[in-house]
Design a protein around this nucleic acid. Structure first.
Length: 881
RNA sequence: GCGGACGUGGCGGAAUCGGUAGACGCAAGGGACUUAAAAUCCCUUGAGGGCAACCUCGUGCGGGUUCGACUCCCGCCGUCCGCACCA
């Protein structure tokens, strides 16, 4: 019977996918042993927050990770590919308040739902290592490490100005304030003075900065963002003496940090932050100043205010003395643009070379003196009015510095002041300042990891003894009022002091949830061990070889994890420097938006599309009302432009969803989810399935030889097969999934030509059949990382009784890729005019002769004599006339 | 304001090192099969010219380096992202 009439059924993903998932599960082929002697490879995707359902962003993230995991497993590595849940956090408490469901119940229900969704994706995960950060079996170890960090001096309790989120009723870290608003609530944050627990991330500021250079497999962008966030600046700490007659509280001096000590002779005022001790002191006898300070504090740090606020200040009456001239007095202001958090909270103002200072003096008429003259400017006439000059130049109006460049002047000022003592300290010392602040981790929330300390009136802060760990969250809590339920629980916090046994109180703050995610990658290496980590396991698996997640964690999570790794190393919990050797930040999943005339948003599933290109129109399915097709934006609940992964998997199958996600855009860029694209992926699945079924009955059994006298066309087919294999392997290795898929498409086109070849050589000629068999086997193996279910189905249809998921990656036969002849493009004056086919090792002179003999070349030369012939071996020939 | 990335057909994009621009897919148009539709298969598809062989132009804009530039350099324009009173 001719193959055409063998009507093969359509591939039924809904039936096939669960079947293969069950088989993988039963044979436990994705569970990883710590004592596997093979070389390790640890691939990790950022674990999800159990919000309720997975979204397309998850599908994209985990599809990419699974390609890497399956590929590396086939390449013979012992692959660790675990999954867990970032399970503490605010939404659970919000659900508790809104729906009267316990955060724990809500969280575990969500985990169950999302786990089943992830399972339907057919990911090659080792579920035996699953962890949830809200499980006491996890957070007890976090409490242990907190105590270890505390003992090592890496944790500190201090009173500090903090970011207070009035909606979430909790403190936020600097990293969690985006444009002056809380990262979750979006509410403008307020400034509050509170006693808080801090991780001393600044202790590692220099190392965190320096080590960025070692992270060669991180995106340059992320490294740069972290570098800017850490914000190292080198400068000078200068002690300005105060005029004793003017200082209200008997203060002697004021410390100033500057990076522009070269401009010291351009100074004409000093300024301190509103919350600087000198400001507080001066305000005691100065009601106007006190009022100004109160006004500054009321405004806080909200972004809009900062951007539009004028530079305001009030003279304290205090006078500072210039370090190089005892007769030079500088007025000291309290100014709203000085931050207590940076440097010493005090500056000397040099208006000519700092825009903020210039704005300030222009408002108060203090004038300015330029001290750096730009190249080519006449020092006698150079003046500053509206724009400060911060470029290079020559020192002027600066006594002994005149004529130097900026660097020389800085050095001279530093040298002179360092050498001069007042009391037992020099007048200045070189200093490095960081923008990075310590990480405040106290949260006034219930659903987080309890901070394991006890407050005793007599003994102070007492760590919970290790034998009492974990400090577990009480379950009988109520969410009927705002605030922290732990704080008002009738009994939980009342415990005896571990030291003196008198009544004491537990700390009721919990840890920032970013603490939970700062070490989960280490826990995965041995989630069963009774210590936070097992040293053999972390030594074996860490660092993570390939970490994949969203760019939104470029600073927060990725910086915290780097800190945690250092703190864990300092306390002996692991021995590595950096947690993630390779980082890949994937793009978002975006979709066009649909808006009704009434201004409400319509979901893609509610919309019918008509027409193409410019004439595309959209209508509501329910009423037929036209809706406007809006811009392509990140899938979000608010714009309702989301597509539910469950719907896609039910309609098309997990393989189609995975394939489309990987095929349509470079992985680091946003991918636009389109119905056409998904259908294209679906069409490809059916096409492969049809082709395999058409060919399979005519193929020799697996492992058939090519014989001693292969038929015509065998070599050509094998060359294409192995070229495709080499290309796809290379592209997957570089995480270029979209081009890997393009190469697979090309190869499927080749196989289709073979099967549809009217001469049917592959069916009648054993050696050609063997080449076709090789091609189809390799095709099934190449699609397996992206479409694992279809690959198994094809593998079985091709007569194999093994699992493709457990097969080694096929070897490229390099000798096939060595061509005897090569075809070179031929240019005349840089324009392509012809091709020339020559022996691979042809001599340069022979190539030149062959090229010049070409008709197309002769015509292009049009009688001119070639001046030069450039032959780039294996690449191109260019005739210059 | 500071820092960074990116601009290629109708669309997503390809082009490891400076060497054939537009791979592969989507969309569109034409055709075959069908009573019809779906599915499938074949052809066309950067722009312009030519019956054709072919020719000219073409990677945001303007210059430059080079035998040769999407790629490197200089100057613009545009889009996106990060940081932002950091002394």
């Amino acid at each position: 019977m001719p193959p055409e009439s063998q009507k093969s059924d359509r591939y039924n993903a809904r039936e096939a996918e669960p079947r293969w998932q069950k088989i993988w599960d039963e044979r436990a082929i994705f569970s990883t042993r710590n004592d596997d002697p093979r070389e390790k490879y640890y691939v990790l995707e950022m674990f999800p927050y159990p919000s309720g359902r997975i979204h397309m962003g998850h599908v994209r993230n985990y599809a990419m990770g699974d390609v890497v995991a399956r590929f590396m497993r086939a390449r013979g590595f012992s692959v660790l590919h675990p999954m867990g849940w970032d399970a503490f956090g605010m939404p659970a408490e919000n659900a508790a308040m809104e729906r009267r469901v316990h955060p724990k119940t809500w969280t575990y229900d969500n985990i169950a739902a999302m786990k089943s969704q992830l399972k339907s994706m057919g990911l090659s995960l080792d579920w035996s290592r699953e962890i949830a950060t809200c499980d006491p079996a996890y957070y007890r170890h976090q409490q242990k490490m907190f105590l270890d960090f505390l003992a090592a001096g890496l944790v500190e309790r201090k009173k500090s100005k903090v970011n207070w989120d009035p909606v979430d009723q909790t403190v936020l870290a600097n990293e969690q304030v985006i444009e002056g608003r809380g990262w979750r609530s979006g509410a403008p944050v307020e400034s509050r003075e509170l006693t808080q627990w801090f991780f001393k991330i600044t202790a590692f500021a220099q190392d965190l900065l320096d080590s960025l250079d070692t992270l060669e497999r991180w995106p340059e962008k992320v490294r740069l963002m972290q570098k800017n966030w850490i914000g190292r600046s080198e400068g000078l700490l200068i002690r300005f003496a105060l005029d004793p007659a003017s200082a209200p509280g008997g203060e002697r001096e004021i410390d100033v940090f500057t990076t522009r000590h070269d401009t010291l002779f351009g100074a004409n005022f000093m300024a301190v932050a509103p919350d600087h001790p000198l400001a507080t002191s001066a305000a005691r006898k100065n009601p106007a100043l006190a009022a100004f300070i109160a006004e500054c504090k009321r405004h806080g740090t909200a972004q809009e205010i900062v951007e539009t606020a004028e530079k305001l200040g009030v003279d304290t009456g205090i006078r500072a003395i210039h370090p190089f001239d005892p007769d030079w007095k500088l007025p000291v202001y309290v100014a709203n643009f000085i931050l207590m958090e940076y440097g010493t909270g005090a500056i000397f103002g040099c208006p000519a070379h700092d825009q903020r200072d210039l704005d300030f003096v222009n408002r108060y008429g203090l004038g300015n003196v330029p001290v750096v003259c730009p190249p080519g400017q006449d020092p006698a006439t150079f003046t500053i009015t509206e724009a400060a000059y911060d470029g290079p130049g020559t020192m002027i109006n600066s006594r002994f510095l005149d004529g130097m460049n900026i660097e020389e002047a800085k050095e001279e000022v530093a040298r002179r002041l360092e050498g001069q003592m007042r009391g037992d300290r020099p007048l200045a010392q070189r200093q490095v300042n960081f923008r990075l602040r310590d990480w405040g981790i106290s949260r006034q929330r219930y659903w987080g990891c309890p901070i394991p300390v006890i407050h005793c009136e007599a003994c102070g802060v007492v760590p919970v003894p290790e034998s009492d760990l974990p400090v577990e969250l009480p379950e009988d809590v109520a969410f009927d009022r705002p605030g922290n339920p732990l704080d008002r629980h009738p009994s939980w916090k009342h415990v005896p002091c571990p030291r003196c046994r008198r009544p004491a109180a537990r700390e009721t703050d919990t840890m920032d949830t970013f603490v939970d995610s700062s070490w989960y990658f280490a826990r995965f290496t041995d989630p069963w061990t009774t210590a936070p980590t097992d040293r053999q396991a972390v030594d074996r698996w860490l660092p993570v070889d390939q970490y994949i997640g969203g760019i939104e964690h470029a600073i927060l999570h990725l910086l915290y994890s780097r800190f945690f790794t250092r703190a864990m190393r300092a306390t002996g919990h692991l021995g590595i420097d950096e947690p993630f050797a390779g980082l890949f930040t994937q793009g978002m999943v975006v979709h066009e938006t649909y808006q009704t005339r009434a201004g409400t948003w319509a979901a893609p599933a509610e919309v019918r599309l008509e027409g193409a290109d410019d004439s595309r129109r959209a209508y509501l399915l329910s009423t037929g009302e036209p809706v406007e097709i809006g811009p392509v934006e990140k899938m979000s609940k608010s714009k309702r432009n989301t597509v539910d992964p469950d719907d896609i998997i039910t309609t098309y199958g997990a393989d189609v969803a995975r394939w489309f996600m990987l095929s349509d855009s470079p992985p680091e860029r946003d991918v636009i989810w389109t119905e056409e694209g998904v259908r294209g992926a679906s069409r490809f699945v059916q096409r492969v399935w049809r082709l395999v079924n058409e060919a399979a009955p005519h193929l020799p059994p697996p492992g058939a030889g090519f014989g001693s006298a292969p038929a015509a066309g065998v070599k050509s087919l094998r060359v294409q097969t192995h070229q495709a294999l080499a290309d796809v392997s290379n592209e997957i290795e570089r995480l270029k999934f979209n081009t890997a898929i393009a190469k697979i498409y090309t190869f499927v086109n080749t196989l289709e030509e073979v099967v549809h070849d009217p001469r049917r050589e592959f069916a009648g000629e054993p050696s050609y059949g063997a080449a076709a068999r090789e091609g189809f086997d390799i095709l099934a193996q190449m699609i397996a990382p992206m479409m694992p279910h279809l690959a198994e189905e094809c593998w079985a249809a091709l007569g194999h009784d093994t699992l493709v998921a457990a097969e080694p990656w096929p070897e490229v036969v390099e000798s096939l890729l060595q061509r005897d002849t090569i075809t070179l493009p031929v240019q005349v004056n840089g324009k392509k005019r012809a091709d020339v086919t020559v022996a691979r090792d042809a001599a340069q002179t022979d190539i030149e002769a062959a090229v010049l003999a070409l008709v197309a070349v002769q015509r292009a030369l049009d009688g001119r004599k070639p001046k030069r012939v450039i032959v780039v071996p294996q690449r191109i020939v260019n005739v210059v006339a």
